[in-house]
Design a protein around this nucleic acid. Structure first.
Lengths: 223, 223
DNA sequence: GTCTATATACAGATAGAC
DNA sequence: GTCTATCTGTATATAGAC
């Protein structure tokens, strides 16, 4: 079994690798590289050449594995939506508002922390008018927001929190948490840090939880 | 004096217009169109062809007036930074925290409201790693944030507000207000609205002011 | 001052060699 | 299964006609 080399000198198939393993590894590299490039330059601004170089493969291989630029982009968006859905557990009126809101803020913060490129990819898509995600926004995501909003309203009726507009509250949590991934360049430039540490993220999470819960008149569990 | 026509049929010089007026109007049209296109597609993704069509001019005129794609982009960024600086009045420890924070939230909200394309242009620049704004972020803007942060800390020492981290607070206000311009497509998709009315913006401003001030333990002036 | 025509580079995509 | 070579379109930018 021959071992091919790309012009860049990078091995396409490592020793002892089966075909399946090669494909899996190459696809993984391409998806990671593409997420970075699409996040940074948007759909139109991204080039397959750039993605291929960052994945250490010739350009045609990107098209061979992914079919088309459009298909690659859609696949990345879908992967990000799956990550998003994975942390959306249902809540009920019987749950504790403080507990739910804190978990909401924390899980959203961790998603941006674990997948900053995916977060920025999503942001670039929305910034450009959401041409590929229109249906998702007006459909599944809208339903999810409305369902949560109803719960928040019922909590307010029961006097468990202030009667704030629940949709604006959800947007507030989304924007405040995503900011640290999407505007990372600004955050790092202003704070003078080279990167945010786990401790920084923990402090920011605590800050946001405290301000938002107190701001909505939700009493923390242990206060 | 002849009146020229572009292939699209749009007049380049209206009747009775002087040369100066034509230039001024064309530049204005180009800047407005370019702001939209750069905001939507980012620096790389934007095309002069697209900008020219939206400005109703031939592509070469865009380059004639603006010199280069890069120069046009930088000029737009600078214009947005000027708008931003125009509303940054100094504050002092002697000022009322509630008043200052409310004005801060309100003016930031209005900036995004009046210049949504500029807000998205800025967002796209940061999202892409701020290649053109690095110096501004690490210099002038950083100083501005640090100065405000000191005031917030002193307010906290005087017991006028909770001792929250002032930099995270500024980021919270920025992200929460910009969200309605930058993520407009998401906001409209989820709320089902075609656009946000002045009344909507007023309600959102009031919501954010209430939650953030209460969340930071700032007593509103009339409470 | 404005526009048409063109130069040159690079985009996404495909055909076919190996 | 992977890579080289190429097709076709469009990008920025410029030269020169009017």
């Amino acid at each position: 079994m021959t071992q091919w080399k790309t012009p860049s000198g990078r091995s396409v198939r490592e020793k002892g690798e089966t075909n399946g393993m090669t494909r899996e590894r190459n696809e993984r590299e391409i998806l990671a590289a593409a997420e970075r490039v699409f996040a940074r330059h948007g759909y139109r601004g991204a080039s397959l050449q750039d993605i291929a170089e960052q994945a250490g493969l010739p350009k045609s291989n990107v098209l061979y594995y992914m079919g088309s630029k459009r298909g690659l982009y859609v696949r990345l968006l879908e992967r990000m939506m799956e990550r998003w859905n994975a942390l959306l557990d249902d809540i009920s009126v019987e749950d504790d508002p403080a507990e739910v809101l804190e978990a909401f803020i924390r899980s959203k913060m961790q998603l941006s922390r674990r997948h900053p490129e995916g977060s920025r990819l999503f942001a670039a898509e929305i910034l450009g008018g959401a041409p590929f995600l229109q249906d998702y926004l007006r459909g599944g995501l809208r339903d999810w927001v409305q369902a949560r909003a109803r719960i928040f309203e019922q909590w307010a009726e029961r006097g468990l929190m202030d009667p704030v507009d629940p949709v604006w509250l959800i947007f507030l949590i989304w924007s405040a948490t995503q900011h640290y991934a999407d505007f990372e360049a600004q955050v790092l430039g202003i704070t003078g840090k080279e990167e945010l540490s786990d401790a920084d993220v923990e402090r920011i999470t605590a800050f946001l939880t405290q301000v938002i819960l107190k701001g909505c008149g939700v009493r923390p569990r242990e206060a």
